[in-house]
């Protein structure tokens, strides 16, 4: 009980922090809106010249973009750079002294942020969907529930990836490059830019072997009611698999990196 309480209070603290820095959230939201808006019009132009593309219609694409938006909003740039900043400015050395597991502590902070930001982003998403009315709700309740479950798992996957990228900063003096590359890889392979169904075969195979599909492609497939029965369970299974694997990868990487830090002394 005592142990989980420690982490839970971190969660509450980061929620309060998210509320305190509302302006940052707003700016973040605007950046997210710019990203999705530019995609929206690119796809609109593409679908303006044809009715469907590989079985995808403009209506379907709009729902897809809604999922991209929600998922991107759940973990903000601010949360993300927070982990990297800890490593870079050396406050990680204070974390080493605390009787907390670094990874778990960061996870709970991230979750706290995600709850607040997630709540607010749903609000944004509703407004957004209202403005561009093409987006539709999931076709049935089961798809909707699976979508929510899969969205929650996607937060864990994304956290793990961000955590790993943050630890890379033990080896660099600036985090922007690493974070930009992380964002670019995630955006492409998660299907945020182009649905995986449109990928050429070799790239599609690659995307399906990587963890990023669990961030957008899988939740989006649930949202659009494309998965049921065994396929649904398999998709959730893939997400769970990556949550566990990446978590332990993060643990191993952390242990290795901390040893490096000790070598350099200080």
């Amino acid at each position: 009980m005592g142990v989980s309480k420690k982490y839970f209070s971190l969660l509450i603290m980061s929620m309060q922090q998210a509320f305190a820095y509302r302006f940052n959230f707003l700016i973040n939201a605007l950046s997210g809106i710019i990203f999705v808006t530019s995609l929206y019009y690119v796809w609109k132009a593409i679908f303006g010249e044809r009715d469907e593309l590989n079985g995808l219609t403009w209506e379907g694409m709009q729902s897809y973009l809604l999922v991209v938006f929600i998922s991107n909003m759940l973990l903000s740039w601010y949360t993300e750079s927070g982990i990297a900043r800890r490593v870079l400015d050396g406050s990680v050395s204070m974390d080493l002294l605390k009787p907390l597991d670094f990874q778990k502590a960061r996870l709970f902070e991230t979750l706290g942020n995600s709850i607040v930001e997630g709540g607010m982003s749903v609000l944004f998403a509703v407004i957004w969907a209202f403005l561009f009315t093409g987006a539709q709700l999931p076709p049935d309740a089961a798809s909707g529930l699976f979508f929510l479950a899969s969205l929650i798992l996607s937060v864990f996957i994304k956290f793990n990836i961000i955590y790993l990228a943050g630890l890379v900063c033990f080896y660099t003096t600036s985090h922007l490059g690493v974070l930009w590359a992380r964002t670019a890889i995630t955006n492409l392979f998660s299907g945020a830019l182009v649905p995986l169904a449109l990928f050429p075969d070799w790239l599609g195979t690659m995307a399906r072997l990587l963890p990023f599909q669990g961030i957008i492609a899988i939740p989006a497939a649930f949202y659009m009611g494309q998965l049921d029965g065994a396929a649904a369970l398999e998709a959730i299974g893939i997400q769970l698999f990556w949550v566990v694997v990446l978590w332990f990868a993060g643990k191993a990487f952390w242990r290795w990196s901390v040893r490096q830090v000790t070598i350099h002394g200080g």
Binding site: Y171, V178, W180, A181, T183, A184
Partner: peptide
């Protein structure tokens, strides 16, 4: 890392 990250982006 910075070079490769930029090129990859």
């Amino acid at each position: 890392i910075a070079m490769c990250a930029a090129m990859m982006t």
